[in-house]
Computed example of a mutant assay.
Amino acid sequence: MAETAAKRVKTSPVTIGTHNGHFHADEALAVYMLRLLPTYQNSELIRTRDPALLATCHTVVDVGGEYDASANRYDHHQRTFNTTFPNRPTKLSSAGLVYMHFGKAIIAQQLGVAEDAEEVKVIWEKIYENFIEPVDANDNGISAYDPKGIAAAGLEKRFRDSGFTLGAMVSRLNPNWNDPVPSDPVEAQKAEDEKFLVASTRMGEEFSRDLDYYTRSWLPARDIVHKAYAKRLEYDPKGRVLVFDGLSVPWKDHLYTLEEQSGGAAEVLYVLYPEKPTPDAKWRVQAVPVSKDSFESRKPLPEAWRGIRDEKLDELTGIPGGVFVHAAGFIGGNKTFEGAKAMALKALDL
């Protein structure tokens, strides 16, 4: 069996090399991810473009003009470089390269399982698509949407969003053009390196939050969503209502995956869940968005119910226990499960 990248690295002392000067989100994250692993935990960081110094480093990221995992070289700036993550279209940055080779070891360490465990692969792919790929795209100048397609459609932004991405956040942590610089080159590099470490830590905090979410929350929720999906025909003959008994979990990602795999089954339109895991909890009726990040619902709650509360809602729906329906129609509530179910079933026909 081929050795993993994590097993190839040598014992301490280990030195990580990357370039000095203006730093970016990809190498800031790459360094942080490596340092999550025991071999790199106490590693020394050298930021330089000197080939002789880089040659002394155990691992080099984002500089050096070489991608060779067997030699722990992870640069992506070569003219011939076109490597992508498995089944994804975006060219990798140094963050993507390090994650592709070391991500499974990081996830397995977090879960306390072997690298070849099925759940490791599932999370490895999910974190890439949801966190690492945008970093790769940003560093390689790849837009989320085709600029020519946007121009052809005549689409314009409704407001300025300040370009607040992880890449923009790291860019702002670089020294300003008019910041004072120590006259001693050694002290100047030390000051720049300290700012880089701030950026690396900041990127790492976001990565670790994602890692924690997918291993401790998202993964345990998967089984619960699968069980609820299997029972959906108990509430509606077409399976358009999903019910979570006892508690709500992060369900959107898992639901869309299940629907895609079901091949032609009716889409779920409403999800029912209690506000808290107690017998007297009120229940929510949430309309399923057309996509994970969309504000548009597949079937919003009826327009006539929107913005109505309490007794007035009861009178309008003919269902006792109404609490509210949001003015946008994406969510509503009832004091009981039976009331929430009745609201969802009635909304299906309106």
Rank of each mutant, 00 (worst) to 15 (best):
L34E: 10
I123H: 11
L211D: 01
A153L: 13
T165Q: 08
S94Q: 12
A228N: 13
Y256N: 08
D349V: 10
H58M: 01
G103V: 06
E119A: 02
D139P: 00
I150F: 02
P89T: 03
D136Q: 10
R73H: 13
R240Y: 07
P185S: 13
R284T: 08
R309Y: 11
D314T: 02
L155Q: 13
R232Q: 01
R8I: 08
A25T: 11
Y145C: 08
K231R: 15
V186R: 14
I308Y: 05
F164W: 12
V198P: 05
D68N: 15
T201N: 14
E3A: 06
D146G: 10
N176V: 00
N334E: 06
E118F: 11
H77Y: 06
L255M: 06
Y145W: 09
L247E: 13
K10L: 11
A30M: 00
E129M: 05
L45G: 03
F207K: 01
G154Y: 05
M169L: 14
A55Q: 15
V31R: 01
N140L: 09
T165V: 01
V241G: 04
K195E: 09
E187D: 03
P86K: 01
F23P: 11
A281N: 07
G307I: 02
L45W: 04
L111Q: 07
V61W: 03
Y145I: 07
T317P: 00
A191H: 06
H19V: 03
A191R: 03
H326V: 01
K292W: 01
E338R: 08
I16N: 08
D68H: 13
E133Q: 13
L34P: 09
D116R: 13
Y74W: 10
I107M: 01
R222E: 05
Q110H: 07
L111K: 03
P185E: 09
D245T: 07
K190C: 10
G318I: 04
E66K: 14
A71L: 15
A287E: 00
E27Q: 12
A228S: 12
F23C: 03
R209I: 05
R202H: 06
E44R: 15
R35K: 15
K91D: 01
H226A: 12
I123Q: 00
L211G: 02
R158H: 03
P86G: 04
R209S: 07
V135E: 05
I123Y: 00
H76F: 03
D68C: 14
L53V: 14
R160C: 14
V241T: 07
K121F: 00
A117L: 06
V170W: 06
D280K: 14
K148L: 14
T336V: 04
L255S: 04
E3T: 00
N20T: 03
T18H: 11
P300K: 06
L233I: 01
W251Y: 10
T59C: 09
L211F: 09
T83M: 14
P175T: 08
I308A: 03
I224C: 09
D184A: 04
R232I: 00
G149E: 14
I16K: 12
F131Q: 12
A344N: 10
D179A: 10
L197A: 04
W177H: 14
A328T: 14
I319S: 09
S297D: 04
V243R: 15
A152K: 12
W177Y: 15
S143F: 15
K312L: 11
A153M: 11
R49C: 08
M1E: 05
A153D: 08
P175H: 03
Y67L: 11
F295P: 12
H76T: 04
L166F: 11
S171Q: 14
E192G: 13
V241R: 00
Y40K: 07
